[in-house]
């Protein structure tokens, strides 16, 4: 018995060691980025890399207010991401309700259509959008960028919201109908409060995807609309070796999504797994 237990303990120790090593693989690049962001340029270039050094805040100052300020890009990312999120939710929530609950002609084909639009490769959209927006002089405009961002956020949001709408018990709507509530009242007062959690998950995903988007931003934006992802990329191609400043700027740029990620970790996992657990139903 004790032999058994000792073997089990040893197995557990090995398991934890392997798991901890893997954990390190995932967390190390980020910790290293944080360390580098506090180094001076001379400390950065020391090789082998130094672990002990005088930390400085200069890189963050520069990234925010100095020559390499990314404040404008942060504002741009915020405007584009928030507008995209609001528009997407306003369009997707009612549509998802109708899909999940109401009699709708050609429901199957419309459902297939929203799913199929998610399979379009982004490069297959950025090419025609470049030609079209160029023709109507809308390259490098907020309107153009937000329209383009709807192409990936809207089908995804409808798909995600339908799964939440399907979970609402029918009794809720029926009770409302018996109370002679109009359809709009039912939607607004009964349905939407019921799917508040689902809306939160959808908001998080749409916002994250919009904030992190790069392909459309780099090709359809410009000097007016330059989200942080593009600012980061330009930083490296122009300032090849200012890696401490890059790390600081990148960490600032990623701060909103990291905060959301940690704060809404449960909701994100729920959103990720919803496809795995019940994605079979409609596909």
């Amino acid at each position: 018995m004790s032999l058994h237990r000792r073997a089990a303990t040893r197995r557990k120790v090995v398991l934890m060691a392997v798991a901890a090593a893997l954990l390190l693989v995932w967390v190390f690049p980020l910790i290293w980025a944080v360390i580098v962001s506090f180094k001076s340029e001379s400390d950065v270039l020391a090789y082998p890399p130094t672990v002990f050094f005088e930390p400085i805040g200069r890189n963050y100052e520069d990234a925010l207010f100095g020559d390499f300020s990314i404040l404008d890009s942060l504002a741009t990312s915020a405007i584009v991401s928030v507008s995209t999120t609001v528009l997407t939710i306003v369009l997707a929530v009612p549509a998802a309700y109708a899909f999940a609950r109401l009699k709708l002609p050609a429901k199957k084909s419309i459902g297939f259509y929203t799913l199929a639009t998610q399979m379009v490769p982004p490069v297959g959209l950025v090419i025609p959008y470049f030609l079209i927006l160029n023709k109507v002089s809308m390259l490098d405009t907020y309107t153009g960028m937000i329209i383009v961002y709807l192409t990936f956020s809207l089908p995804f949001a409808i798909w995600l919201m339908v799964s939440y709408m399907e979970d609402i018990p029918f009794e809720m709507e029926e009770a409302a109908f018996l109370d002679k509530a109009t359809r709009w009242q039912t939607l607004w007062h009964i349905i939407i409060p019921q799917v508040r959690g689902g809306i939160a998950v959808t908001v998080i995903f749409v916002f994250l995807n919009a904030w992190n988007e790069f392909l459309f931003a780099v090709q359809l934006g410009g000097n007016t609309v330059r989200p942080v992802t593009v600012a980061m990329y330009n930083f490296v191609s122009v300032e090849q070796t200012l890696w401490a400043k890059l790390s600081a700027a990148a960490l600032i740029a990623m701060l909103p999504v990291v905060i959301i990620g940690i704060a809404a970790q449960k909701q994100i996992v729920k959103g990720l797994t919803i496809g795995a657990v019940k994605g079979g139903g409609r596909r």
């Binding site: 995932w26 967390v27 980025a33 994100i268």
Partner: peptide, 16 residues
């Protein structure tokens, strides 16, 4: 730890 890489922008991951 697992949530962090997922929420980062791929372009930033590539640069890091």
């Amino acid at each position: 730890v697992a949530i962090l890489p997922i929420v980062l922008a791929p372009v930033v991951v590539g640069l890091f």
